[in-house]
């Protein structure tokens, strides 16, 4: 564990609390993509099956359980109690293409041919693009509530710190994970536009609104 990875994981954790806070405070999930949230649930369930086969640390297991449980809870909140506030008409990205694409990539370039590693690879490819429905929705509406943009920023910062974690691990441990690196780099690049708008607008106390 290094400082980049620890802060990244904590930011990932924080992003989920920010999202739950937004839903609770505004009593609404308006502007939040249910498709992105459902994709994250699929990502966590398919990646963390090793909970049953491999023990790394208490930290590792607790985080995995939290990510699975919290993503299931968020999907439930948006699906049932907060359904009337869900902006379905702007959440129109075709998420099924992302699932099919990630599945094809997982089968074409799996980490190994063990079923758990194919699912792991699928989850890595899917996580790389899972934010797209959310970014697409923000582009369609042209703006987002400030707290929603904080949520997306925390997620993007978590990914950016993972890149630094990999550089650090490569030089200190000789650690290599090409699949995670390529997918992680793609994932971080997807946030580039968002980062720019967030830093130039939201940080100055203005709405996340497209120029």
């Amino acid at each position: 564990m290094n400082i980049f990875r620890l802060v990244a994981d904590l930011l990932h954790l924080a992003s989920i609390f920010i999202l739950l806070l937004k839903i609770q405070q505004t009593k609404s999930c308006a502007g939040v993509s249910l498709k992105t949230q459902a994709l994250y649930f699929v990502v966590f369930v398919t990646r963390y099956l090793d909970l049953f086969t491999h023990f790394y640390s208490v930290y590792n297991s607790l985080m995995k359980l939290f990510f699975i449980a919290s993503s299931a809870y968020i999907v439930y909140l948006m699906w049932k109690p907060y359904r009337p506030t869900y902006s379905a008409s702007t959440d129109t990205f075709r998420a099924e293409f992302l699932i099919v694409g990630a599945a094809l990539l997982g089968l074409a370039f799996p980490d190994s041919w063990h079923i758990l590693d194919i699912l792991w690879s699928f989850s890595i490819y899917l996580e790389a693009v899972a934010i797209l429905p959310q970014l697409f929705q923000m582009t369609r509406t042209g703006e987002a509530e400030t707290i929603t943009s904080h949520y997306v920023f925390a997620l993007g910062a978590y990914r950016a710190l993972y890149l630094m974690n990999w550089i650090y691990r490569y030089y200190t441990e000789g650690y290599m994970d090409v699949i995670a690196w390529v997918a992680g780099a793609v994932q971080t690049i997807l946030y580039a536009d968002f980062f720019y708008i967030y830093l130039t607008r939201v940080m100055r106390g203005r709405l996340f609104s497209l120029p």
Partner: peptide, 10 residues
Amino acid sequence: SSSRPVHDEL
């Protein structure tokens, strides 16, 4: 199966 890659990251 001991040659399977280890994924210690979240």
